[in-house]
Design a protein around this nucleic acid. Structure first.
Length: 304
RNA sequence: GCACAGGUGGCCGAGCGGUUAAUGGCAGCAGACUGUAAAUCUGCCGCUCCUUGGAGCUACGGAGGUUCGAAUCCUCCCCUGUGCA
C-alpha cells in the first residue's frame, strides 16, 4: 500500500488520484472532517467525477450529529484496506490527519472511547479551578500527569476519563501496547512544497472555498442540526468555524476569509511538524500535482 | 489654519522618569500530541559574540534640551486621525 502525507493544500489528493489510476488503486482518505457527510467545500473533498473513476473510502461515513473518533477510523479504515487488498487493488491512503494515520498504522491502546457526560463535568471543574484537574490526574496516574502539560486541558481530561472509566491508569493501558497494521508493505510518500508557495496556495484555496459557497453550505448543515441540542464539534473545523461567524453576524465576510486563511496556514504548519517525525517517509519537494512529483512517486510505487 | 487625540519592536497594543530589549496578543519559527486532533498544548522570537551565565551594540516618528538616569518631562519640526473653520 501507499501512504501519502503532507500539509493541507499540498496536492496530496491529486497525487493520490494519479497513482490510483495508474496502478489500479483505491483511495482511503485519512481526514477527520471529510468523514462527515455534507462537509464538501471546506474539506476540499475530491470531486464526484474523481470519486466515480476511483473508489474512495472513509469519506462520507458519518453524520455531523454522530461524532467520529480515531478508534472508529482505525477500525473502518483497516476494514477498507482488507477489502481493497482482497480485490487485488492497491490501497492508497491519503492522510492529513496525523492522529488518525498513526492510529491506522500503529493502532491504539485498548482504552475506552470518550464519555461526553464525564467530560462535561470535568470541563466544568476545570473552568472553576484551572490547576485542579492536573493535580487530580497526578494522584490517579502520575506518569501521565508528568507527560501532559498542566495547561493542556483536553489531554488531561482524556487521561482522567480513561482512568475513571477503565479503572486502570492510562499509563498501564498504554503498556499493553497497540496492534499495528499488519500484512501490508507500506510505501510512505511525503509531499513537501516550498513553504512560501504552500502558504500562497493555501490562501487562494481558502478564498475559493468562500467563493464556492462555503457560507451557504455551512448554513445548510446548520439547519440540519436545528433543535438537536449542542452543536457538533465538526463545526469548529477550519473554514466552517469562520463561516459560522459570518452567519452569526460576528464577522464581515472579508474578515472571515482572512481568518480562515490564517487558520489553514497554522494548520499546515502543525501538520508538517507531525509528519516530519513519521518514520520512513520519502519526501518529494513540490506540490502533489507537479508532473515531476507525480513521476517520481509513480517510479517509487513501481519499484515497490 | 486652529483645537484635540495620536505616532512604541513584522503587525496590533501596554508602558508614561530608574527594577525596560521594553507586559500582552497576533504573525513567524521550532516542538509535543494513543478516541474532539481541521482539536489542544509547549519553547524561541532586535542584532552580534562567548560556555550555563553573561558581554556588547542598536531601538519607542525626527532633531535638540532637562536629568546622575528618558519610550516616559520640555522645545521645535515631520506625519496620521477626528472636530471646528
Amino acid at each position: 500500500m501507499v501512504v501519502i502525507v503532507g500539509p493541507t493544500g499540498s496536492g496530496k489528493t491529486s497525487l493520490a488520484l494519479a497513482l490510483a489510476e495508474q496502478f489500479s488503486g483505491e483511495i482511503v482518505s485519512c481526514d477527520s472532517v471529510a468523514v462527515y457527510r455534507g462537509f464538501e467545500i471546506g474539506t476540499a473533498k475530491p470531486p464526484l467525477a474523481a470519486r466515480q473513476r476511483v473508489a474512495h473510502h472513509l469519506i462520507d461515513v458519518a453524520d455531523a450529529g454522530e461524532s467520529f473518533t480515531a478508534g472508529m477510523y482505525l477500525r473502518q479504515a483497516r476494514h477498507a484496506l482488507a477489502e481493497i487488498a482482497a480485490r487485488g487493488k492497491l490501497p492508497v491512503v491519503v492522510g492529513g490527519t496525523g492522529l488518525y494515520l498513526r492510529a491506522l498504522l500503529q493502532g491504539l491502546s485498548p482504552a475506552p472511547t470518550r464519555v461526553p457526560e464525564l467530560r462535561e463535568r470535568l470541563r466544568a471543574l476545570a473552568a472553576r479551578s484551572p490547576n485542579h484537574l492536573h493535580r487530580v490526574l497526578r494522584r490517579m496516574d502520575a506518569a501521565a500527569a508528568a507527560a501532559i502539560h498542566p495547561n493542556d486541558m483536553p489531554k488531561i481530561i482524556r487521561a482522567i476519563e480513561v482512568c475513571m472509566t477503565s479503572r486502570q491508569t492510562m499509563t498501564s493501558l498504554w503498556k499493553e501496547g497497540r496492534e499495528p497494521l499488519r500484512g501490508f508493505r507500506i510505501l510512505r510518500i511525503g509531499v513537501s512544497p516550498e513553504r512560501a508557495a504552500l502558504y500562497a496556495r493555501i490562501e487562494l484555496r481558502a478564498q475559493r472555498m468562500f467563493d464556492d459557497g462555503l457560507v451557504s453550505e455551512t448554513q445548510t448543515l446548520l439547519q440540519a442540526q436545528a433543535g438537536a441540542g449542542e452543536l457538533p464539534f465538526v463545526f469548529n473545523s477550519l473554514g466552517y468555524k469562520q463561516a459560522m461567524r459570518v452567519l452569526n453576524g460576528e464577522a464581515e465576510l472579508s474578515q472571515a476569509i482572512a481568518e480562515a486563511q490564517q487558520a489553514h496556514r497554522n494548520y499546515a504548519k502543525r501538520q508538517m511538524t507531525w509528519f516530519r517525525r513519521e518514520p520512513d517517509v520519502l519526501w518529494l519537494t513540490g506540490f502533489g500535482d507537479d508532473a515531476e512529483v507525480q513521476r517520481r512517486a509513480a517510479q517509487e510505487v513501481a519499484k515497490a
